[in-house]
Amino acid sequence: MTHSLHRRGSRESLSRDFVVLSCSAKGFNNHNYAEFCRKFMQICLKHNPVNFGDMKTGNWLYIDPQEIIERISNNTIVEITYDSKENVISLMKELKEADLGISVVISGISEIVDEIAREAGLGQVHTREYSLGTHGKTERLPEWEILEFHTMCGHAMVSPELIKKMIMDVKLGRKTPHEATVVMGKCCSCGNFNIPRSIELLEANLPLWTIDDPVY
């Protein structure tokens, strides 16, 4: 229920972070969903996504997007990440026009998603899910800066230790921010990991971490 909902970050950073997803409605369209989902994915590709995946197949960091589309089944969740409101607006306009009849969800900052719905001619959002934050033993959470990366994969596949290692690898010149991002993004098979945002976060984190804690 919460896969792309609980992303953490500043308003400025999250304002360039949108996950568009679709899945079949069991008992309604799961007998022929794949056919329409393939059309949906082809349309998504035209609007400059920054990541693209099917949770059962993987993301475009290691599988060709056309192969991802080909392997779509009636029973999967596809997820496409964007870093621009304008691109999501143009996407939603085309999806409205295409009238595929499958459900489409956008995760993002509420007011911006409202703007997207208005400007794409969709009227108001149908159903909204709110994050009420994280509770309990919050002292056990990774550092805030690590959570900004970690929560870009809702399944928690990008480990806090890997994120720290990637920050260190970039700081020590072993990897470029893009190379480090690809290592992390490959762990998130769904395609939720926002590539440009991760690169920005890596660059922002370099001055915050010292090379002796931890040493990799």
Binding site: L5, N29, K96, V104, S107, I109, S110, E129, S131
Partner: peptide, 17 residues
Amino acid sequence: GFEVLMNTKNNMGLGRP
């Protein structure tokens, strides 16, 4: 006493029927 965060997940109402 709970706070709503800025991020939300939104069904855009495109599914049919």
